[in-house]
Design a protein around this nucleic acid. Structure first.
Length: 212
DNA sequence: GGTGAGATTAACT
DNA sequence: GTTAATCTCACCG
């Protein structure tokens, strides 16, 4: 697998509104320096003026990373149990980001299995908490740069998802109708089955799927 | 196979 | 004291 085809996503990629960055992130690779690689198939956008965003109420000790430079990580502890990873978007000083919800494991899979304590490929990165755990992302990486030579980085290998679907986000109560969750239609590695396909034509010629 | 409640920390009312 | 950008396991069918 040639690394020569992989280009690191630059800060400029993230220096846009999260609603633009989020769909562009689908199909990109998230990597850890130890060889773990996965392709993003599901993300959610959170702008600062969005009541559902952690930054809606202004800067705090917890969310300060999201006001930092674009392309850095915002990592927070959710439900007292799980770590969740975001990529900071927009200009520095604007609190916004994209939540990484699910990915397709590609390389370093044994490391992910060990980190997760589970074997099935579909159980490794199919959810925000799972993805973070599979990549060993926790508080130590909050605020770290994902556009340089740090532990975590985002790469573009030229692949483009077949179909990008927008639908309402998961697990929120405010502004719950906004279609700011973006996913790759038909992927088997989503955090949950896509609700109602918003692109009906995609389901017409479905391919035979294998169950586990 | 599908649904429902518990786990457990930090920020905010 | 309550809520939260969730996951897992128990239990029902």
């Amino acid at each position: 697998m040639p690394d020569s085809n992989r280009a690191r996503l630059p800060p400029e990629f993230f220096a846009r509104m999260p609603g633009e960055v989020a769909p562009d992130l689908l199909g990109k690779l998230i990597t850890r320096a130890d060889g773990r690689v996965a392709r993003l198939v599901e993300v959610e956008a959170y702008a600062q003026d969005d009541p559902a965003a952690h930054t809606f109420g202004g800067k705090s000790q917890r969310n300060r990373s999201m006001f930092g430079p674009p392309g850095h990580l915002y990592v927070y502890f959710s439900y007292g149990v799980h770590w969740c990873a975001n990529l900071v978007c927009g200009p520095e000083g604007y609190g916004a980001g994209v939540l990484l919800r699910a990915a397709e494991p590609l390389e370093g899979i044994d490391i992910m299995r060990k980190a997760r304590g589970r074997d099935p490929l579909r159980d490794l990165c199919s959810g925000p908490g799972r993805l973070a755990q599979a990549f060993g992302i926790d508080r130590a990486l909050d605020g770290s740069d994902a556009t340089g030579t740090g532990v975590i980085s985002l790469l573009d290998d030229g692949a483009r998802p077949d179909a990008v679907i927008a639908c309402p986000r998961v697990g929120i109560s405010k502004n719950a109708d906004a279609p700011l969750r973006f996913l790759v239609g038909g992927s088997r590695y989503l955090s949950k089955a896509a609700p109602r396909p918003l692109v009906p034509t995609l389901t017409a010629g479905r391919k035979r799927s294998q169950s586990s």
